[in-house]
Design a protein around this nucleic acid. Structure first.
Length: 481
RNA sequence: CGGGAUGUAGCGCAGUUGGUAGCGCGCCUGGUUUGGGACCAGGAUGUCGCAGGUUCAAAUCCUGUCAUUCCGACCA
């Protein structure tokens, strides 16, 4: 009995509905995604966590390239003078940049900032290589890490160094830049919804919330299990503001000099935090099959008995040959231990095979999300796995969507909004006049920020929820990570 | 950046009025087991977060610092 209690201790994680914050950090550690380093806010991404990121990279990188993106690598240091070239941009980032002041023992003539984002570097380079309209468009992306010296940090959600991709493009016309901005936002939205099973709201950020130096920022917003919003990815249209600051001009076919139009767009390892907080449960992580490092784990039961291990190997080989990421766990741990372990790690499907199944030419497939068991014949295995993974993705999406719907509210008056903000956690749809003053007041008095002005969505009333003046903009308000 | 909590073996923790560190799990060896975190026997593992200070003596008291975490403020 004593042994049993101890085992329970090992497996225990905080219940997500009792303490979501603690549940999150438990999962991140116990699913072996990260470890802490000795520098605040700088985390070690462990093999299992990094494998998720690699899968995210693989999928997105391929999608980017389908749209003509080329990958490059920019330096990690930005001279102070270069960072300062665009006023809004430097003001936005200055409070959280890390500086390099010395090389060895010698003080540098000009200090260098560790990139918090690379607009300035791309612009400097583009100014050098863009001369003619024939040089456009330029559609570059880089996968790298950036540094932002955050005060409060949380694994994946807010760290001082994080991995991301940043695409930076230059275009001949404003129209083309706008199209690229929307195109990349759609790539993100599709990835979130179809690959990760995370429903998103596509929309535009208010001026207050948009990227420093951008003309327009578009965003995909996801709602987490606890009702807080997470900005999943952003796509910015800079117009030609940066081009003017960095003198990126080209000679057009009418023989006049014109400024180029710029966009940038990015997603980061924060996505992993989003996956955890959208799909996870009290048994641990639940990973969408598209990015799960292990899609199917095969667990032999009574593996020492004749033929069991061979049958399990056969199953693993069959599935590997069909292109799935499969792990056969033939370690000495008890089956029960393995079940719990792979549930903690969020493996979408588990296959159990033991003497009883073998006698019937079958195995058991268990889904991670609902623990539903199905007995399937070995001949049909590949189809059953395909179906299981696909159904699981759909179920994850469905569940997340239901959560979002249940947590989406409508407010027509200020009092109503305030009341909802106090009692509920989620999105509040309400009209807004467009004035910063009202946005600040809602933040101040109702503690909600504007998440986005959705591309799709009907007006819920005619007047601003705050000041009562005529309003046409629908805004999703909420609390964000 | 402000307030609270924590830091002792890989993990979870105990350690009394200061006397030089212990428990469970895990790990290693051997054996028995295996359909929801198995069992027996034997074994290994510590600059007590770090740096100062007080003391004959510090995990324990004092100061500083770093990290984790929660709440708040801030937040491309």
């Amino acid at each position: 009995m004593a042994g049993k209690d101890n085992k329970k201790l090992v497996a225990e994680i905080t219940s997500m509905d009792e303490d979501f914050a603690r549940w999150y950090t438990d999962i991140v550690k116990k699913a072996d995604l990260i470890d802490y380093s000795s520098v605040k806010g700088c985390m070690i991404i462990r093999p299992y966590g990094y494998a998720i990121w690699e899968n995210i990279q693989k999928i997105l990188d391929a999608r980017f390239k389908e749209t003509g993106v080329e990958n490059v690598y920019m330096p990690m240091f930005i001279p102070e003078s270069l960072l300062k070239k665009e006023k809004d941009h430097v003001e936005g980032f200055a409070p959280e940049v890390a500086w390099v002041t010395h090389g060895g023992n010698e003080r540098l003539a000009e200090r260098l900032c560790v990139r918090p984002t690379s607009e300035t570097l791309f612009c400097e380079h583009y100014a050098n290589i863009i001369k003619s309209y024939r040089d456009l468009p330029k559609v570059y992306n880089q996968w790298c890490s950036v540094v932002r010296w955050e005060k409060t940090t949380r694994p994946f959600l807010r760290s001082r160094e994080f991995l991301w991709q940043e695409g930076h493009t230059m275009h001949r016309t404003a129209k083309e830049a706008e199209e690229r901005t929307v195109q990349m936002l759609n790539v993100y939205a599709d990835f979130f919804e179809n690959d990760l099973g995370i429903p998103v709201v596509k929309g535009r950020k208010t001026d207050k919330e948009k990227f420093a130096g951008a003309e327009a920022t578009y965003t995909v917003e996801a709602l987490m299990h606890d009702g807080k919003a997470l900005q999943g990815g952003t796509s910015h249209n800079f117009g030609n503001g940066f081009a003017k600051a960095f003198d990126i001009q080209f000679l057009d076919n009418d023989n006049t000099l014109k400024y180029a139009y710029e966009t940038s767009w990015g997603v980061s390892t924060r996505i992993i935090g989003g996956i955890i907080m959208t799909h996870g449960d009290d048994s641990g992580l639940v990973l969408p099959p598209s990015v799960a490092p292990i899609q199917v784990v095969v667990i032999p039961v009574q593996q020492h008995k004749d033929g069991v291990l061979e049958a399990a190997e056969g199953i693993a080989d069959t599935l590997k040959a069909a292109g799935y990421r499969v792990k056969l766990d033939d370690s000495d741990q008890s089956p029960g231990w393995k079940f719990s372990e792979y549930e903690m790690r969020g493996v979408p499907l588990r296959i159990e095979i033991g003497p009883r199944d073998m006698a019937e030419g079958k195995c058991v497939i268990v889904r991670r999300d609902n623990r539903e068991k199905t007995f399937v014949s070995l001949e049909n295995l590949t189809n059953s796995v395909a179906e299981g993974l696909s159904n699981l993705r759909d179920a994850l999406y469905e569940k997340a969507l239901n959560n979002r719907n249940a947590r989406t509210f409508v407010a027509k008056s200020f009092d109503e909004l305030k009341d909802i903000a106090e009692k509920e956690s989620g999105y509040i749809k309400a009209m807004w006049c467009g004035e910063l003053e009202c946005e600040l007041k809602l933040k101040e008095e109702a503690d909600v920020s504007s998440r986005c002005i959705p591309f799709e969505g009907e007006a819920v009333s005619d007047t601003c929820v705050c000041c009562g003046k005529p309003a046409k903009k629908l805004v999703y308000w909420g609390k964000a990570y």
